[in-house]
């Protein structure tokens, strides 16, 4: 009986520690693969055969079926420029220029990594859909409340994040991910 408890203890404790430490490692850093531009974070090995086992598992969990960086680069922001977590209780101004890619989009996701249900059925803004100012730059308001001009809806009472996708990024961006220009994210007001 004592013997059973001894070996059983080894196995149970080992299992718990093994699964627990795996979950810890996979949650650690979720999709921030190493490079950042303000609050926007990216890695360079998503979807690539060179990815280590942690990156591969994180991609399977948080960004399955990604493309490699010559084809697409993904930058995800879960905070504003001040480093505060993005919240559906606040309105943010997202302002920037065209991303350095053949085609680009910025999409909002809920805490479950799925698109956020909203009355306008709008989930993203993109190179070909965003309304621009006279000089070509854009101003988008991210908010649970309907906004004039460009509006990216999110849900009150829950956190969200945004992923910017560069389809066929310019060579400078894939060579030096930290040099990319991404939109600023500024908190305007909160409820």
């Amino acid at each position: 009986m004592k013997r059973f408890a001894y070996w059983g203890g080894i196995i149970v404790l080992g299992l718990a520690l093994g699964v627990g430490s795996a979950a810890f490692m996979l949650r650690l850093g979720a999709l921030d693969g190493g490079y950042s531009v303000g609050p926007w974070k990216t890695g360079t090995d998503f979807g690539s055969a060179n990815a280590d086992m942690y990156t591969r598992a994180r991609v399977a969990l948080y960004g399955l079926l990604a493309l490699d960086r010559k084809e697409t680069m993904y930058y995800t922001a879960s905070t504003d420029d001040a480093g505060k977590p993005l919240s559906g209780d606040c309105t943010y101004v997202v302002e920037g220029k065209d991303l350095a890619a053949r085609w680009w989009s910025v999409t909002a996701y809920g805490p479950d990594s799925f698109l956020i249900p909203n009355e306008a059925n709008v989930y993203s803004f993109a190179k070909t859909t965003v309304k621009r100012e006279a000089d070509g730059h854009y101003i988008v308001r991210v908010s649970a409340d309907r906004q004039e001009g460009n509006w990216l809806p999110v849900k009150r009472g829950q956190s969200f994040d945004m992923t910017a996708r560069f389809y066929n990024p310019d060579a400078e961006v894939s060579a030096a991910p930290a040099s990319a220009e991404l939109p600023r994210i500024t908190k305007e007001s909160c409820k």
């Binding site: 080992g14 299992l15 520690l17 093994g18 430490s21 795996a22 086992m53 591969r56 598992a57 991609v59």
Partner: peptide
């Protein structure tokens, strides 16, 4: 006991991370 737990935990850790995708 400690070494046993470490070995089991290490194996389970790697197996979990590798099996997940």
């Amino acid at each position: 006991f400690i070494v046993g737990v470490a070995i089991v935990a290490g194996a389970v850790h790697v197996a979990t991370v590798q099996a997940l995708p």
